[in-house]
Write a protein that binds this DNA or RNA. Structure first.
Lengths: 337, 337
DNA sequence: AAAATAAATGCAAACGTTTGCACAACTTAT
DNA sequence: ATAAGTTGTGCAAACGTTTGCATTTATTTT
């Protein structure tokens, strides 16, 4: 019915000044216990909700964290978000979430918008922007935490999975199981994590005395569909060139590969071994259960918040790299010599 | 370095009044083309970003939609979110997202918080709150759209899947395939959609002359885990009482059931038929691919935004019910007579 | 050439808070 | 009794916008 009551309304009714109300609601010892309680009771009764817009205007910032992500429908992202959400809620922060559909332009636009909202800081998941971004970052005085994308700058911090190590771990496992011809199903080529995982793959190969072969890197984008297409690529290879194992950029595409293999009558892991990355919830219940490298997503989200909050308190923050563990399930077969 | 420039800064440099700058940036015809262009160029050069906090304070609302959801890590929610995101972005709205972990208390708290941010309106997914909520809703002057939860009130609108119909459709399909003993794996009992799907299940049963049996409703919460546990329940039933089919509250739990069945050596669909609900991306690639009732999630999200925006323009809005289609895949077997 | 009209700009109030400073009314110490 | 503190409250400015109204300047009409 009527507009939401403001501090002024309460002040008028209580017969005090707005400043007193403000202080009373903030539980300031500058106002007597009696009036404090009287005013708080009144506020409750009137169903008073503070205008966060006004507050953030005068304070210059608000208890809101801006979050930018390329998508919301990837289970890996969902899990990071969950960590983010829990940690930020606990700290009394809200989140303004924007997604970019992987568009770098839009990512930058979103950064601007969120800053316009006086967010205290930003958390950016799997950033896809590069280059020109750098200038913008230098001008911003709010802290920014990148999750799984490395950037540098004055108020820029990073929380990331050690993707190079993860890529190495995955490939290494395949190698110790006797595989010698291992294909890599790639992820979004603009992402940093893609590059790092590929580097780990290459290093493991070379450490084993194998040479990196460009034609064993299959383009993909980390989608279910990419996994399916990879299976068909595999089917079309001549027998002697056919890899015995796939290392997939992520679980989602590995799952796609698994499914298509079943439909085409390819037995996993007997005919082909498959390795994922992320350890999403579904990896546990796929058929066969997927061997993968865990990404501590929940922790990634939580730590991103912690880093941001620490930076907001002007305490020193160091970049964090998380190493995941190998999760051995049933999609990789041990080769006979 | 320096603070973000404000309209006043631009005004000072350009030698005009702040109001002129405001109008120039809004492309108002009240300011001459020459100054308009000059100011816009200047703003671009200074990297001006408007303070949305200030704007929303004076305007009384902001182009932000508050979104509340019980979780972010459910693929069904993710898909609705995607529809939401696309439609709202296109309309120039941002989203302030809060999740409640299914806690009704917290849902109400979030409504208050978001309103404090001067959001234009609210979209609430799968609301879990009831009762006392009603009072609050009556006091709010901003429009609220509920997705898959029915509420009523002055500025309250609904966009929902016709869950009763969906539940009926699913059960009906099982019935026409010759199943006579059909278990229902339940969802979160506080949710409206659970109740409706259960009602559809019951109606189909009764229309077929079968009686509804309470002991065939297995408690669950829509998680993967609930699906697994359901399989074990099934395993423990005496042969003659064992259902030949399961209708699951959602795909997630159906997928869990599928997986556990495979591990326990239960063949789906030969030993047991399984029916899901939602048609999440994974349902297509499970083994076997899951027969399910489509929920037009993307559309649900899009329509929620459309309804909200229409309400904001003070145009009439009617509640929308979407009927999903039966998606026949391979997890349901035709029974011999 | 004066008056009326139109076009461009500026002034100032308002939105709902927070907060430094000033003020009043009491206490307490001298 | 006076000075010096304390304690509780109020005043007013500030945050960055938008917008109705007033003002100036340029253009048209008579």
């Amino acid at each position: 019915m009527s507009q939401r009551p403001s501090i002024k309304d309460i002040a008028r009714i209580a017969g005090v000044a707005p400043s007193t109300v403000s202080r009373a609601l903030a539980d300031s010892p500058r106002v007597s216990l009696a009036t404090r309680e009287r005013i708080q009771a009144l506020a409750r009764e009137l169903d008073y909700t503070p205008s966060l817009a006004a507050r953030s205007l005068v304070m210059g910032s608000s208890p809101v964290i801006g979050v930018i992500s390329p998508t919301l429908s990837d289970p890996y992202i969902a899990s990071v978000m969950k960590g983010l959400e829990e940690a930020s809620h606990q700290a009394g922060y809200q989140r303004l979430v924007a997604s970019t559909q992987g568009d770098a332009e839009r990512e930058i636009e979103m950064v601007r918008m969120l800053l316009g909202h006086n967010v205290g800081g930003l958390i950016i998941l799997s950033s896809r922007a590069q280059g020109a971004y750098q200038e913008l970052l230098a001008q911003i005085s709010e802290p920014i935490v990148f999750v799984n994308a490395l950037h540098t700058g004055e108020h820029v911090y990073n929380v990331a999975t050690d993707n190079e190590h993860g890529g190495w771990l995955a490939t290494q496992h395949l190698l110790t199981q006797g595989h010698r011809r291992i294909a890599y199903l790639a992820g979004p080529t603009r992402g940093r994590s893609y590059v790092a995982r590929a580097a780990g793959y290459r290093r493991a190969l070379e450490e084993a005395g194998l040479s990196f072969e460009r034609q064993l890197v299959i383009p993909g984008d980390g989608s279910i569909r990419a996994g399916r297409e990879a299976l068909h690529w595999w089917l079309n290879q001549p027998d002697e060139q056919r890899p015995t194992a796939f290392f997939c950029y992520n679980d989602l595409s590995a799952l796609g590969l698994l499914s298509e293999a079943h439909q085409q009558g390819v037995n996993i892991p007997d005919d082909l071994s498959v390795m994922g990355f992320d350890n999403v919830p579904m990896a546990k219940i796929s058929i066969p259960p997927l061997t993968t490298v865990e990404q501590r997503t929940h922790e990634l989200g939580r730590l991103a918040v912690v880093s941001l909050l620490t930076a907001l308190e002007n305490k020193p923050v160091t970049d964090i790299f998380l190493r995941g563990e190998l999760i051995v399930r049933a999609s990789v077969k041990r080769m006979e010599e």
